[in-house]
Nucleic acid binder design. Structure first.
Length: 561
RNA sequence: GCGCCUGUAGCUCAACUGGAUAGAGCAACGGACUUCUAAUCCGUAGGUCGCGGGUUCGACUCCUGCCAGGCGCGCCA
């Protein structure tokens, strides 16, 4: 299909240049040729709007230009073009001969699991940092959305020729882990009936899981920590709590099918002096100065609205300081592109980090952020309230146990990540018609079932595409199905370029839809051999495309349901 | 006050980045299983694309001014 498009494009460009020469139009004024797939089948298989774009430079009407171009375009055997017509305000529509469907199927067959791959990334290295939730409690639903978006994004990037590293940034330095340590410490004392000796911190973590962590300390250490000064044991509680909760997070993510190559410790940036190193580096480039006893980054030099503090006047570094050091580290490690997946409430933070990236001497485009909007959790239309403070929030684990990983992934991915998402646990759980996950998976199960039945009847499934056999193609449903299959590489590329993993969910859904229509309209195994084999080829191609899409999404492709 | 995001069918969302008659799913109504899975399909109905200007062959898409909602504007993380 790609090949056909390229050939068409070249031919149109050539004809356009010929026409320009004949009419004395300078070639550099000519518009670029775009070929697009019309929405409606009666508008052909491919269409171009060059005549509309170029009417002005020709000093003529779009339809007249289109007519002139069309006259010079002769349907050719090789390009599969069966017809050229002018429509609407001046579109040129191309109708392909039936052979195109065979060409699509042939490509899908020969590429198999690789169908949809590309070399967009050209082997460049990209690091995707996602989730990065503070290790102060279990993951909640919002983290889950970021986890899936990041995970699927990495799969897509890998599939499109990038060398990918998946990374989790652990915020194990600073105030919040301190609070965690004190919270655990307090609960530990409480378990031993001496809670009043270690008061619960004002901004402490109230969730029950803190008691579990404290119980773990008690089981491991016994009561001897009671006898030591609070400040002396705090580092232990802090470290223990952090490690334990991180392990909980890691297990939840693993259950969700999300894995990381690197777990990067914020604390390590201080242990190995990366933060002062970064500050020296930026100071040397003239982007750091001292004022009011604090150390500042000149973010305004790169379009941020104000300069930002790196080291407070009390000597403590800001979160931003470690973040800049972390991003410097990313680029020092040789990544060509760094993609961060953040909660949308952090969007105001983007300009300063981008400014820092630029100050480090990188193209600001080498740093990209995917924003994840809020998830509204509902149960049968009723909002489920979440408050991490009080500890009464619905965890990712709760949702996974309730509706399962496949449905959870699907729901998190079915909207653009930067738009609000209503996640109704009731709907996600129903196995009925209003649950799109099953609609898609059912399509795959149906395909598998056809092949099972074929085997039972002793009907061999064609392993290749016989050009004669594809002449049997042709119903509107078959065409729609093959058209959708042919779209897959484009959709993957688009998802990769635009950082929009949800596109694949829409693709999978549309493919399932095209398949269900085809299935209901066509008999397969009962038909005479030529037609039967052609349809088996279509089903196999559908199955490969759908399985590839589901694999990228991390959603199961069941053989039966 | 400033910045970012959002506003499309009763509800939840698409619209190939400026293209042709704005499309799906729920919800409503009417049909299709003696067949390779009816967790499916087909049809009907539903719209001043928040509102007003502008740009051009052409605007849901771009520019501008309003209106409404969300988020953000710390020497917090």
């Amino acid at each position: 299909m790609e090949d056909i498009r390229d050939m068409l494009k070249q031919e149109i460009s050539k004809v356009l240049e010929d026409l320009a020469r004949d009419r004395g139009v300078a070639p550099e004024l000519l518009p670029e040729v775009y070929l697009e797939r019309p929405k409606r089948p009666d508008q052909g298989d491919w269409a171009t709007n060059v005549a509309l774009q170029g009417a002005k430079v020709f000093g003529s009407h779009p339809r007249e230009v289109a007519q002139a171009l069309a006259e010079r375009l002769t349907p050719g055997e090789k390009s599969c073009v069966a017809g050229v017509e002018i429509a609407g305000p001046g579109f040129i529509n191309f109708r392909l001969s039936r052979g195109w469907m065979g060409a699509v199927a042939e490509r899908v067959f020969s590429e198999g699991e690789r169908y949809g791959r590309s070399d967009l990334g050209r082997g460049r290295r990209v690091q995707v940092e996602f989730v990065s939730a503070n290790p102060t409690g279990p993951l909640h639903v919002g983290h889950g959305r970021g986890a899936v978006v990041g995970d699927v994004m990495t799969s897509i990037l890998e599939f499109t020729g990038w060398q990918v590293a998946r990374e989790y940034y652990i915020n194990d330095a600073g105030l919040q882990v301190d609070n965690l340590g004190r919270s655990v410490q307090s609960r530990y004392f409480e378990l031993l009936g001496q809670g009043e000796r270690a008061p619960f911190p004002e901004d402490g973590y109230h969730g029950d899981y803190i008691r579990d962590v404290a119980q773990g300390v008690l089981d491991q250490e016994g009561p001897h920590l009671l006898d030591l000064p609070l400040e002396e044991t705090l580092p232990f509680f802090r470290e223990y709590g952090c490690r334990t909760l991180l392990e909980v997070i890691r297990k939840d993510l693993e259950f969700f099918g999300v894995r990381f190559d690197v777990w990067f410790s914020e604390k390590s940036l201080y242990d190995n002096a990366s933060v002062p190193g970064m500050i020296d580096h930026l100071r040397g480039r003239g982007f750091v100065y001292d004022q009011d006893g604090a150390v500042w980054f000149r973010a305004t030099a790169f379009g941020d609205e104000k300069d930002r503090v790196l080291i407070r006047s009390n000597g403590a570094p800001t979160y931003f300081a470690s973040d800049v050091a972390y991003h410097k580290d990313k680029f020092d490690r040789g990544f060509d592109l760094a993609i961060d997946v953040w909660g949308a409430d952090h969007h105001g933070y983007i300009p300063r980090v981008r400014a820092a990236v630029e100050a480090l001497g990188r193209d600001p485009q080498d740093f990209q952020v995917i924003l994840i909007q809020m998830v509204n959790l509902l149960r049968h239309g009723e909002p489920v309230t979440m408050s991490k403070r009080s500890g009464q929030f619905v965890t990712l684990r709760d949702v996974l146990d309730d509706v399962g990983p496949d449905a959870t992934r699907y729901f998190f991915l079915m909207r653009r990540s930067d738009s609000h998402l209503d996640f109704d646990l009731g709907v996600a759980k129903t196995q009925g018609a209003d649950n799109p996950v099953y609609y898609v998976q059912y399509a795959h199960a149906r395909m598998a079932s056809i092949f099972r039945e074929a085997e039972a009847r002793g009907i061999p499934v064609p392993s290749g595409v016989d050009p004669l056999l594809t002449e049997a193609f042709g119903s509107p449903e078959e065409q729609a199905l093959m058209r959708q299959i042919a779209l897959f590489p484009d959709e993957v590329a688009k998802a990769s370029r635009e950082y929009e993993p949800h596109r694949l969910v829409f693709f999978a859904y549309d493919l399932a839809c095209a398949f269900h229509s085809f299935y209901n309209a066509s008999r397969i195994l009962g038909e005479e051999p030529a037609l039967r084999d052609a349809r088996l080829v279509a089903v196999r191609a559908s199955q490969i495309a759908l399985a590839n899409a589901l694999r990228l999404l991390g959603i199961g492709a069941p053989e039966r349901m």
